[in-house]
């Protein structure tokens, strides 16, 4: 291992990490919004739209991100629909992630016991209050581990953004590897960079899950 090589290229990795993190976060946020929307469309059985949401979830969950990105970035421009590489990255990650987030939210909503909703109605809560104070907090708490697992999954998936010629961590490493031949140092820094991004996310997940332990009140499985 060559320490001076590593030190000299820390700035390259920082800029790569910034691309990975920034577009990963954009994708995660958009995916959460899309996922919540799809989940609600299905939960409240909105006609037609629930079918569309269901079909979208199947399509997105059963195809690889790499193939989705090729279609977006190299396929669609040929029929006149053109996005920048950055837009493709966010759209692709949102398309993939939205479906996974929707499934996580759904499992949360389904875990809320019917009796809870009925009890809410009995004490005179309106439908809106029931959702706001009874269903949503419990559903979110139950869904939290799956949601965080999806966040980590999506940030990992950003590693294919290099096919869009974006200078994310993976592409920075690949460029350095082909130009300098210091494969071991380059890969070592890549591993460290991903750990530095993902370990805090994982720590945050543990913290949030611990604070949301009140979920599942009345379920016999959890205490």
């Amino acid at each position: 291992m060559d320490g001076s090589f590593i030190l000299a290229h820390v700035p390259d990795y920082l800029s790569g990490a910034w691309v990975t993190l920034r577009f990963g976060l954009y994708g995660v946020i958009c995916a959460m919004v899309l996922g919540l929307l799809c989940c609600l469309l299905r939960y409240f059985r909105i006609p037609v739209l629930q079918r569309i949401a269901g079909g979208y979830i199947e399509l997105a969950r059963n195809t690889p991100l790499l193939v989705q990105l090729f279609f977006l970035y190299a396929g669609l421009p040929r029929v006149g629909i053109r996005f920048s590489a950055e837009a493709c990255a966010v759209i692709g990650l949102t398309f993939l992630g939205g479906a996974y987030m929707a499934e996580a939210f759904r499992s949360g909503l389904e875990s809320v016991d019917r009796a809870q909703v009925e009890a809410g109605e009995c004490i005179g809560l309106t439908r809106g209050q029931n959702i706001r104070y009874v269903i949503f907090p419990q559903a979110l708490a139950t869904a939290a581990p799956a949601l965080f697992a999806n966040v980590i999954f999506l940030i990992k998936e950003t590693s294919v953004f290099s096919v869009l010629a974006m200078m994310d961590l993976m592409n920075v490493a690949d460029t350095l590897r082909t130009s300098g031949g210091r494969t071991v140092e380059v890969l070592f820094m890549l591993v460290v960079a991903y750990l530095l991004i993902l370990l805090p996310v994982s720590a945050l997940a543990t913290l949030v899950e611990r604070r949301l332990r009140y979920a599942g009140f009345g379920n016999q499985h959890s205490v």
Partner: peptide, 20 residues
């Protein structure tokens, strides 16, 4: 395996093992 993107692992084995 939970923390490393599969692509990074692929690079390590495909490019790194030849070097190491």
């Amino acid at each position: 395996v939970r923390f490393m993107p599969q692509l990074v692992l692929l690079y390590i084995v495909y490019f790194g093992f030849a070097r190491l």
